[in-house]
């Protein structure tokens, strides 16, 4: 589904990712672990197509298509979702309006009918309920005045509504208390299917107790230095990055 080959990425002319390769197939959940500054978020942003992340060499293919040729919104239509480490506030725009506009924009790009207001309300209420979100939150402005946990939960609701093929979740577990962590984990697990894949980017092993990955990769200084099964996460937790790598 996702094929990254020898990827080099620079931000403001500084090379952050230095020849990373990674392949993710349908039905798999991968976790990339690493310390701050290892280049994890840069990888997530590059996959999603953020400006100012210059791919200087290498390729990223998604479902056989070259991602580099696609605008961020086209990547969403192709089935890619980025869960933000720091979800952004948009004052004056209600969560409902935001999500409905997003979903219909994606449907339009896919040549599908726009969803009616009634259908959409039914869908988002259901997803909000699954993720334990108060329906009142849907009427509030996007992420404005939300706690850290509420913001991350909102990301999960958005993911559920857009139902991506590949979800890249950047530090989705950070700032969550244990109850919120469990809810977010349930949201992620619900998204794991034979025809979907998940890439978790995380600092800690904590989330991985609830979302058990098929593969764990250790990222240091812009490169994946070690890959293994879920036991690698525990090893990291015990010994620290320096020893494992």
């Amino acid at each position: 589904m996702l094929k990254i080959k020898d990827l080099h990425v620079s931000v403001a002319e500084k090379e952050i990712i230095k020849g990373l390769s990674l392949e993710i197939n349908a039905g798999e959940t991968h976790a990339i672990m690493g310390l701050n500054g290892a280049g994890k978020s840069t990888l997530a942003n590059t996959i999603a197509g953020r400006d100012d992340y210059d791919v200087t060499a290498g390729t990223i293919e998604f479902d056989g298509k070259d991602l580099m040729d696609m605008e961020p919104h086209e990547r969403v239509a192709a089935g890619l979702f980025l869960g933000f480490q720091y979800p952004v506030e948009i004052p004056g725009v209600s969560n409902l309006n935001f999500m409905r506009t997003a979903l219909n924009s994606v449907r339009k790009m896919r040549g599908e009918e726009e969803m009616s207001a009634a259908e959409f309300m039914k869908l988002i209420r259901e997803k909000a309920k699954d993720l334990g979100m108060d329906p009142e939150m849907l009427k509030r402005f996007v992420n404005v005045g939300f706690s850290g946990g509420e913001k991350k939960r909102n990301e999960m609701v958005q993911m559920a509504v857009l139902d991506p093929k590949l979800a890249v979740l950047d530090e989705t577990d950070s700032g969550l208390d244990i109850d919120a962590l469990k809810i977010v984990a349930e949201g992620i697990n619900a998204q794991r299917r034979d025809d979907t894949a998940v890439l978790l980017i995380t600092h800690y092993q904590r989330l991985l107790s609830y979302v058990q990955p098929d593969y764990v990769h250790v990222m240091i200084d812009g490169l994946i230095v070690k890959s293994g099964g879920k036991e690698l996460a525990l090893e990291l937790e015990e010994k620290g990055y320096a020893d494992v790598a």
């Binding site: 605008e71 961020p72 919104h73 933000f84 935001f98 997003a102």
Partner: peptide, 12 residues
Amino acid sequence: DQLFYCRARGLD
């Protein structure tokens, strides 16, 4: 950040 957030949700 706001622009990218919207674009990463499917808006041009």
